[in-house]
Design a protein around this nucleic acid. Sequence first.
DNA 1: TATATTTTGAAAATAAATCTCAAATTTTAT
DNA 2: ATAAAATTTGAGATTTATTTTCAAAATATA
Lengths: 147, 147
Amino acid sequence: MVLTTEIVNDFKNFIKKKGLKYTSEREEILKEILKSKDHFDVDELYMKLRKKGSKVSKASVYRTIPLLVEAGYIQEVYKQDARSYYELTLDKLPHIHFICVKCKNVDEIIDKYLAELIQKEAKNKDYTPLTYHLEIFGICSNCKRRV
Amino acid sequence: MVLTTEIVNDFKNFIKKKGLKYTSEREEILKEILKSKDHFDVDELYMKLRKKGSKVSKASVYRTIPLLVEAGYIQEVYKQDARSYYELTLDKLPHIHFICVKCKNVDEIIDKYLAELIQKEAKNKDYTPLTYHLEIFGICSNCKRRV
DNA sequence: TATATTTTGAAAATAAATCTCAAATTTTAT
DNA sequence: ATAAAATTTGAGATTTATTTTCAAAATATA
């Protein structure tokens, strides 16, 4: 696991380099995200912060997320029902999301060939890939059993 | 190219089998979609219909799309700015969408290994895949040149 | 042909994300 | 440390794709 303090410091530098101001809200949001072990959406993140007594507004959460994406700490991994889900990029291997259309469960699968495939096709097209999603919508084994 | 009349008839059977009513609106929407060579969203489709003098409402377009997805004629291929894009499933090989974050251009790439990769992982997890997207967000070669 | 059922169009409702703006905070210069 | 300049914040309004509502119209059934 990467050190939180180190990341927080890097983020501070990133913010400064962009000529922006380093605020306690931005730090609070990053720290909370660094604790996440899984996918999250803005609402979940906002609720977690609130429960801890944070006064950060939802607007600030919405405003901080693109900065964290740009800095490379998080990625938007999929969208469901017009809602975006994010996850930490750190230490993450390329993965696939299996989204069950019945129970809405999301299963994460690591596939080491996926990154190669993407790099190969990006090179072909002279594309610079920043982030990607591979989402497979289908029916999970549980839902297949209980028809 | 698959015969339109055949598809239209299959769709009619699909609708009937579900105990729904086969309406001229549903047929109009399907026929218009069958003409599409590319991705489309609800607005584009609705506008095309209007230009032809169709009286179909946008609500009906929204209501017909899930039926066509369920019947397997179209797929949701990506979302951008909270808007869903669809395309015909017919005769389509597995493909990747490169979405340029600068110019918003979407490039389609056929990759024959993608389907294999998905089938392999689905089998592993005892998953029944229905549809999938591989979206790569990045910067296209054009936008890289004119920085 | 009449009855029952579903679908339609138009407009209202919903909800995620973005925007507005005055007040608060951060940064810079003195 | 203090004041001025610039940015960010919170709260609520706005935006916009999609969904829902409901009376009227269309379709299917008996």
